[in-house]
């Protein structure tokens, strides 16, 4: 139920709305809960509302941590 999906902002619309894209799917969503967005931002979308902005820097950091977690035993064995 609390599933929410990352989508990219394609166009800022009036009245606190935005057009977002996820692969081929385009939807109009409310941005009232997250405030200012720019075209190109990624947001977490749930039941037609953006819940939060995805922090690109923290996403990169997570991927680095995942690689580290995956690499740890190999280093230990070396």
């Amino acid at each position: 139920m609390c599933l929410a999906i990352p989508a990219q902002v394609r166009e800022i619309l009036p009245d606190g709305m935005a057009r977002v894209g996820l692969d081929g799917v385009v939807k109009e969503i409310s941005t009232a809960l997250v405030g200012d967005l720019a075209v190109g931002d990624y947001v977490i979308v749930h039941v037609g509302f953006a819940l939060s902005k995805i922090d690109a820097v923290e996403a990169e950091r997570t991927l680095a941590l995942l690689a580290e977690a995956a690499g740890a035993p190999a280093e230990a064995m070396a």
């Binding site: 990352p6 990624y42 996403a59 995942l66 035993p73 190999a74």
Partner: peptide, 23 residues
């Protein structure tokens, strides 16, 4: 899909599982 596909890599999942098993 950005912010989705990179978190579904099976090879990486097995490597993290190996770390969990080791620790």
């Amino acid at each position: 899909m950005k912010h989705v596909d990179e978190y579904r890599d099976g090879k990486l999942a097995r490597a993290i599982a190996a770390t969990i098993a080791a620790e």
